[in-house]
Amino acid sequence: MAGKKLPLPEEELMDPGHVGCLGCGGCHAMRYTLKATGPRTIISIPACCWAVMPGVYPNTCFNIPHINTAFEVTAASISGIRAALDARGIEDITVLGWAGDGGTADIGIQALSGMVERGTKAMYIMYDNEAYMNTGIQRSSSTPIGAWTTTTQVGKVRDYKRAPKKNMVEIMVAHGIPYTATANIAWPKDLIAKVKKAMAVDGPSFIHIFAPCPTGWRYPPDRTLEIARMATHAKIFPLYEVENGVYTVKKFKKEASISEYMMMQGRFRHLTQEEIGSISESVVRWYDKLLKFELMTQEE
């Protein structure tokens, strides 16, 4: 028991001994999320790092019911769970789909779109480490522009990922989802508050959690939270919520340099200052647009 008040809820529903890499941001994301949801939660996890990380049979790090499912069906799986609970009149359970960026923005986007369109009461969380990390750092549609991955190798003829990162939150907004937000493991209280908000929604909710990966991004494992913070301070990963179409952007006095953020990571090492400059322009453009969305939707 805490003699002094701890910064977060004390209950641990994710036990130590999981097999996440050293400094894995996906583990912060899981630990904080479960602190928000509490034990009356069913979690469905497709192929992703978290398919392996709970442990090898008969081990599990979870203290909540947990189901493994196929790569592309997270949202269909939680639709089935919610329907089953509804069929038996059970209302007080949080149904949580937990997938990586590949499992969400690529292979799982169809099932997710279906679930959100149907208005299923379930929470879907994408923990975003910006590539297929479980299979070993392959490009996903959520990999940012400029990044090296094992399938966007930097060579003489082809180089880094040229396409920009797919914006899942905006895709959710286009569905008219009642609640969607971005969250960052460097702001656990904010993350927990957003998960709690999502739990209260009588319908679908989607949270995009920024979860740096030391193994795939090529930085030392102790810098996970530092890098996560810089991403938001540099406006590369703005924190915002969209509640029934109304945008709220979290503003920070502190700023960070995009160039410094990128140069801390081996995956961006090949970029020239000119290339970083053009990426920076697009970051600023999007952030300004977000502020306009906020202004416009708050006024309505």
Partner: peptide
């Protein structure tokens, strides 16, 4: 509970998870 899924693949996935929910 009739679920208007967006594909047969999701239909079966939803069946499996519902059955595992009992």
């Amino acid at each position: 509970q009739y679920i208007n899924v967006e594909s047969e693949h999701s239909a079966m996935a939803a069946c499996i998870s519902a059955a595992l929910t009992g």
